[in-house]
Simulated assay, not measured.
Amino acid sequence: MTEPLVVPSVLPADFARLGEEVRELCEAGVDRIQWDVMDGVFVPNLTFGPDLIAAARPYSTVGFEAHLMVVEPDELLGRYVDAGCELVIVHAEACRHLHRTLARIRDLGARSGVALNPHTPVDTVAHVLAETDLVLAMTVNPGFGGQAYICAVEPKIARLRRMIDESELPIELEVDGGITEVTIRGAAAAGADVFISGSWMYAYPDGKAAAVKRLRAAAKGEEV
């Protein structure tokens, strides 16, 4: 297994002090920061626009990824890249022409990612791997923080791992939803190497830096 990457979602953050929240996450040793972009249509909630992300970018020493949970991602790609997101993730379920959308992200100078909801088949991404830098297996249904991890997704993660390995392409396999010091073990064992944590990390009693270390250790199967 490659060194696991711990990526916090800022969805549980104090929105009134997002710049400071971003700085604190960087100081805690995270690998990059995820922005859960919701449009109120593809998912019920409405969250971060590109101007807000751009305002927070100077506070960060790590990369940003935008997870676009929106119905018309193609219309927004350029704005999130311009806002400072080096990685842009779209949902396969929201893209009419997924191959074209992923290629467009790269044309804009960012890395491309594709997310799959828990029910979406692995084969959906089989023919776009050459245009993809990351595959995200959702371990909750998107739209809300604080949900319980769906362990039934683990066989799907394992199938994605085999597919990526067989492609021999440098594609990251990310999981998002309900990741804790306990659930990360199953996701890592199935083959994930990037782990999104939001509510659990923010609620960790010893602080964010300790939470990051605990997640990394647990992902590697070490005693924590």
Rank of each mutant, 00 (worst) to 15 (best):
D31E: 12
V90C: 02
L108D: 10
D36I: 13
M38D: 08
G29L: 05
A126V: 03
V88R: 01
V41T: 11
I196G: 02
A189C: 01
C85G: 06
D14F: 13
L11K: 04
E222Q: 12
H127L: 03
E21I: 00
V212N: 06
V81F: 09
V62G: 10
P58Y: 15
P155T: 08
E21H: 01
R32H: 03
A13I: 00
V194M: 05
T101S: 13
W35T: 05
C95M: 03
K208L: 03
T120W: 00
L5N: 01
P121K: 10
K213L: 07
A189F: 00
L134Y: 04
A110N: 06
G19C: 15
F195R: 11
V10Q: 05
H99R: 14
G40C: 06
D31Y: 10
E222N: 04
I184W: 09
K156H: 14
T2H: 13
P8I: 06
E3W: 02
F144T: 07
V43R: 06
L98N: 04
A66P: 01
G186I: 10
I53H: 08
F42I: 03
E168F: 02
N45E: 10
R159D: 15
I157A: 04
M38R: 04
M138D: 11
E3M: 04
G63D: 14
T2D: 14
T180A: 07
G178D: 11
M138C: 10
G178Q: 08
A126Q: 09
I184S: 12
E166V: 12
P121E: 09
T183F: 14
L52W: 00
N141G: 06
E27L: 15
Y80A: 01
E24L: 14
E75C: 07
P44H: 03
V81K: 14
C85P: 05
V88C: 03
R23L: 10
T132K: 08
Y80E: 01
A92V: 01
E75Q: 14
S199V: 04
V128C: 10
C151L: 02
H99F: 09
A190P: 00
A28Y: 14
M201V: 00
A188L: 02
L129P: 02
A56E: 07
L68N: 09
D74I: 03
E27N: 10
K220P: 01
E172P: 01
P12N: 02
E166A: 15
C26V: 13
E181G: 10
A83D: 05
V224I: 15
A203I: 01
V140K: 11
V30Y: 13
T180N: 05
D107Y: 00
R216H: 03
P142K: 11
K213D: 12
S112C: 12
T120V: 13
E3Q: 09
M138I: 09
R57G: 12
V41H: 15
A152P: 13
A130T: 09
D74H: 07
L68R: 08
M138N: 12
F144I: 05
I33R: 00
D51K: 11
A54W: 04
G198M: 08
